[in-house]
Write a protein that binds this DNA or RNA. Structure first.
Lengths: 154, 154
DNA sequence: CTGCACCTTCCCATCATAGGAAGGTCAAGG
DNA sequence: CCTTGACCTTCCTATGATGGGAAGGTGCAG
């Protein structure tokens, strides 16, 4: 099987298959007489494993570990679980960060009339920390202050 | 004010201030006799604006627009709101993607006993689409299938 | 023999940010 | 006067995962 077919079969682009080989995530493929990479069913399976792990947001170093554990029949599921939970914790952190941004922006957008006038609480909020509390939502204001003065998160 | 002080005052690193100047996000700073960049209060304010916008996840092109609108006294708040809502929609999309991953992983981790045995539903799920439904949660299974076979999202 | 589809390697770009090297400037203190 | 140290300058490199594209080789069908 050439790389194009392996790509179609595994769902990983040919470009990425070569990349994974280059960084040592998968072993170098066999080569045909014409120096074309040749793949078998188990290679495709491995690539599909990587694709699924990527789809779940695992990083390459994590996938490296998962692949090692996959082929290790003496593995402990505890180790797999540890990697997974660490990754979930990271996802939860990122979600919380994005959620905080989105909430702040939702709030500012709600307060912005969005017509032809120049007056805009969104701009005002970016202008400086001199935020005018909306009666509507005091708790929201505090989260806004935190978010707006925080370091970039993404 | 030299770049170091402007950095401290605005919360934007000196490195990033130079970068923002290089990409034309802020105007080139005045130079001292020694070719040092010199900043005033309004420059610092502009940089702080950028920092706050970054903290809210706006991209550089979006911030470019926001800066333009900020200095445009004939702006319409509608345009600011439009940019903001577009950004919020993007954030919501990313949150949903991460949420789906995290949910799937939470579920798999819950099903993994995490002891010394090799048997592990997390690995099994990455191995292939032959997923064994858990009685515990059928809806969760479907979302798992979708997530695991989806293209990488992050 | 000529297309055409595929493969190869190599370089570049993304996006925001950081690290570091090599060298210039300036003020304080011996 | 000279050194030291804290600044500053520009330029190069890296991140992480992915895609785009160029230049050229391979192989099969018409």
């Amino acid at each position: 099987m050439q790389i194009g077919q392996a790509a179609a079969a595994s769902g990983v682009s040919a470009k990425m298959i070569r990349h994974y080989e280059a960084i040592g995530l998968v072993a170098p493929a066999e080569r045909s007489q014409a120096n074309y990479r040749a793949y078998g069913a188990s290679d495709v399976q491995r690539l599909a494993f990587v694709r699924r792990a990527r789809a779940l947001g695992f990083s390459i170093p994590q996938i490296r570990e998962l692949l090692r554990l996959w082929s290790d029949h003496h593995r402990s599921s505890a180790e797999v679980k540890r990697i997974t939970l660490a990754h979930v914790a990271e996802l939860d952190r990122r979600i919380a960060d994005l959620r905080a941004m989105a909430d702040t922006l939702h709030e500012l957008a709600d307060a912005c009339c969005g017509d032809k006038r120049a007056d805009c609480p969104i701009i005002t909020s970016l202008e400086g920390p001199a935020l005018t509390p909306t009666r509507r939502n005091r708790r929201g204001l505090e989260s806004r202050v935190v978010a707006v003065n925080a370091r970039p998160l993404v």
